[in-house]
Design a protein around this nucleic acid. Sequence first.
DNA 1: GCGTACAGACCAACTAGTCGGTTTGCTATC
DNA 2: GATAGCAAACCGACTAGTTGGTCTGTACGC
Lengths: 211, 211
Amino acid sequence: MVEKQLKDRIIETALTLFEKYGYHGVTVDRIVAECGASKGGFYHNFKSKDELLYHIHDVFITYVLNKAQEAYVKYKTPTKRLCAIIRSFVRVFHIYKPHITVFNQEAAYLKPEYAEKINEKREQYKQIIFQVLREGIEAKQFRTEVPVEIAGLSIIGMVNWMYKWYKPDGPMSIEQIATAFNDLILHSLLTEEAKRDEDISSFLLSHVGDE
Amino acid sequence: MVEKQLKDRIIETALTLFEKYGYHGVTVDRIVAECGASKGGFYHNFKSKDELLYHIHDVFITYVLNKAQEAYVKYKTPTKRLCAIIRSFVRVFHIYKPHITVFNQEAAYLKPEYAEKINEKREQYKQIIFQVLREGIEAKQFRTEVPVEIAGLSIIGMVNWMYKWYKPDGPMSIEQIATAFNDLILHSLLTEEAKRDEDISSFLLSHVGDE
DNA sequence: GCGTACAGACCAACTAGTCGGTTTGCTATC
DNA sequence: GATAGCAAACCGACTAGTTGGTCTGTACGC
């Protein structure tokens, strides 16, 4: 086990500072001072401050997109898939809260060439959610009246908004929060028949998606 | 009717620019150039660029807080109150989308003395939502299992997230969006008995809150 | 003639990025 | 296993451009 590389130290320090002061509230000098590095060390590892911002965005979106794809493949019914995706989404906040804060706050400042790459993955993520919702309606598990786009964006919004309030040492564990979200979302989507179906409604307050 | 005052022109121009490029992506010089004013004119109306940012925050949060309080007073049952508050919240996006974008993106950059004032109102807004949810559970209209804080923050999150996707000229009208939100939210909150209650469930796909 | 509203040249501070130089670690060679 | 050679990693003083904010001056209403 080697000691932590400079690049990682820079990212970690930058993340902590960005989360607290925002991307524009932190200078490169401050980052390198805080982690005992130098201007040269920084620009040896990153082409620019913008590239660091991109890197942070990419780590998070790549991770969460993979998790969603895994969950989609692992489960076969719309309800299970949705619950598993949401749970994986919520869980990311436990590990990547600073990344997500930066992701949600500073995306507007990504340079076009970087923004394009990120938006592509962001779009993919959205489409997975939409897809599962459509499948759920098709399979008569979700109500037909549910507008797929609004519902999908609501789910993404309510989970993403966690970056404004989630504290890792808060009164509720990340698993409890995920369960609460799933319960709320399923209640808003499931048909009455689906709720009566033991196999489907059993996931209402359970931990679908636990590994 | 006098011609539009410089202060308003500055705010309007700044809003358009901030929404597109972010607070830090727009210089004071750019703002005054774009609206045919001067540095002197700007600093005659605002103490600093930060004060302009505060002003934008304050206009929005004050407006939306008032609307929520009005809705609370106007209706007497938890379900009606919640629907009316949500509808008023959604409607704001039609008028104040640029304000809200700035509000949600740049709050981190407010100077402490300004941030404190804004956070106070933000907190009040949250408490109104929590209060209505508690009343709804108390009155057996909402399910007892619903965790007030999570549900409240989810509602705030899903509506606020609109700033990322809402387009005034999109396929759905603002009223349709509000109705869709209310439908989703009520389904996730209402008890089975409340859903069967004609007087309560009638608001599921109706326009409670229309003036 | 006096205060309010605005103009625009000017300044001082800050900050991303550069560049010549030094250290570190690895490898080939004897 | 000592050493020479070399490239990648890293350092930090310096720079050029940018930007929020100031200051003196002017026009105008009362």
